[in-house]
Design a protein around this nucleic acid. Sequence first.
DNA 1: TCTGTAGATCGAATCGTTGCGACCCCAAAA
DNA 2: TTTTGGGGTCGCAACGATTCGATCTACAGA
Lengths: 399, 399
Amino acid sequence: MWRNGANMSCIINIIPLLMGIIRENQRIARTQKYALTFDKMGVIMNRNDSTCGGSMATIRDVARLANVSVSTVSLAFSQPHRVSESTRLRVQEAVERLEYRPNGTARDLRVRKTNTIGVLLHNLSGPFYSELIRGVEEVADRLGLTTIAAGCSGYEGQGSVRLLHEARVDGAIVLDPSIKSGDLLRYAQESLPIVVLDRPLSRDFQSDYISAVAADHELGGFLAGNHLLDQGFRRFAVIAGPVESEDSRLRHLGFFRALRAADIDTVTIPVIHSDFTELGGMRAMGTLLEQGWTLDAVFVANDEMAIGALQVLEEHHVMVPHDIAVMGFDDIRLARYVTPSLSTIHQPMYELGQAAMKKLEGALNGTSTGGLEILPVTLVPRSSTLALLASEEDRAHGS
Amino acid sequence: MWRNGANMSCIINIIPLLMGIIRENQRIARTQKYALTFDKMGVIMNRNDSTCGGSMATIRDVARLANVSVSTVSLAFSQPHRVSESTRLRVQEAVERLEYRPNGTARDLRVRKTNTIGVLLHNLSGPFYSELIRGVEEVADRLGLTTIAAGCSGYEGQGSVRLLHEARVDGAIVLDPSIKSGDLLRYAQESLPIVVLDRPLSRDFQSDYISAVAADHELGGFLAGNHLLDQGFRRFAVIAGPVESEDSRLRHLGFFRALRAADIDTVTIPVIHSDFTELGGMRAMGTLLEQGWTLDAVFVANDEMAIGALQVLEEHHVMVPHDIAVMGFDDIRLARYVTPSLSTIHQPMYELGQAAMKKLEGALNGTSTGGLEILPVTLVPRSSTLALLASEEDRAHGS
DNA sequence: TCTGTAGATCGAATCGTTGCGACCCCAAAA
DNA sequence: TTTTGGGGTCGCAACGATTCGATCTACAGA
């Protein structure tokens, strides 16, 4: 009969009564349980008081010891002025005796935010990223947010993505081409805004919760071009980054724009695409030399490759900048120290980090500024492109 | 009457009956509810299907849509073979339709571990740490753990310490002198073991849950000393790190041990303590020059300072290694590129990272190896200490 | 027909917090 | 004396997952 849906109505009618009974019953049971564990607490407490450590004390332990309710303890932390002096002191003492530390995980679950933002990098390598992270941290600290960085080295869908996938952070700053845009689109939400630093916002990569900050790569290329022209160079080659790299494309574009403005035919300029690594730069430069081009200067899409190129040139006894000038991009620390020191375009990494974090902040508190922010870059001329040096060498050579 | 504990027994007696009723009832109710929310789901789904996003779906939503219980959904994830084919498929589909993603925070709370380990660094700067983190990540990934790095830049008790204080990680690797040993002692627990890379385990800094990994700094100093002696240098100076730095002290110690073994009086050797920075190295070298010592070689406690020293020497037209040889320590990337290239002691950062993580693993799964592990270092001779070069320069100079 | 067993599923408790609403009590206002 | 009010507390219901033991079903063997 009970199984029969036909007379369900009568059952439903008695539910409130039953519920009441059960409820009351549970209350009694609970009370008993408390009494029980109270005794047990004695043991646990001793354990905690001794140096042995044992498992962590919880807010309930504190409440018990201070003889107040759990809510009061919580209140004592969050709004101390709302609890009486004496209570606050008792809580305080209990906290110390038990070495209580709040459980961040539980809090995060309850308040549904982590107060943590993640910086996802391709690898944490290098002087290059450290400035950026510093910029992020500086802003985040001011906002009371914790910054954690995760590298995405190697494998697919590794650890760092877990931060996004399982909502372990409140927001993220991404600088890692190996994280697919599709994934980012899937992860980005109102509750998890993302700022990308390594890719443009295209038509099919757009969301209210994704914004971008970037250096003005195109301007950088343009500055580089103008600088090389200023120094009197006329016959160029380009060592570009991977074809997929939008950054590299823009640098390339700006460079060509400068050349065209000076009526130089860019069509005949040799371009080699490599992979942004030192080794890649060496290989690219090697190819260029083998092919026997007559060159005044080479524009390399990043410093790493440029340094590789310098090494190859040195091996082939090609004088820089006398025979061929070399221009890099990024202004990594090394650029200043190689011989000859490398002319390059400075990316304001620290400011990029700051800007990214500020954008994230906007998205987090709803006053989103959205879209794309572009920061200017600056030219850093050094020895590797100095015409003056080239002619000095000339003289030395001629004498 | 119900509230009166006196006739509780009678209540208790009827409980099984009531339970049965309630249970059956709930079953019916559930069926209804399912039917009900099923309709609602349509709406919610639309919300989710549209681009608007909305709040995250929970495991309950999935259960509802797949028409199974929450536990079954959970089971379908953790032990797929325990649920029937058809159920698994329904769950799978619901997951996709709702774009369900498990809430890591909730899981962490329930299972009382985060599967995350933290790497706490002084700042994330540099080629120096990146190798280390790579080593850590490589091991951690294999263990299914996520690695997160946090810099401890600036302020007291900043963000990164929150990871430890609020038990947001299962373990930590610390390489940041600014984190006080006392704090580490307080945080280290069975449930949160710590491996330190930047300090020795002394008598008053010891715990079952703290272990250490370090490079053999003393050996490094010894190798450096022997190398300089081999090259024929006899009159030395030392630019050491901060007095607090145990690492610097050991390097210094090893260096002197080598000299003493060669019957060189170490008491008359000038020692300047600086701060491990490039600028500090410049100031220290400047002082040394001002004081007018006659020197063959300077042993500098890290590369950063050594590079500063090189710059000062160049400014003063002191030829390296001809007039004075310079030896660094660490083997940072820059060392290879400065002019002249810097002889140094290579610290196996990658291996240090690996070793630290392996030690942490041991502590995490109870098979703790504990204590201190010391990894060997290697000599990397380059131009800045080459006697051969010195004499070549001699010839060039003489001609 | 009954029992035993294994596979599939479910309910309910639990993890440690937070915060809302309710409560109690005492003093000031009516 | 009765309201009002507010400061100080407390109880309870979440938050979203996991997991243990119980229940249900179906089917094989006795």
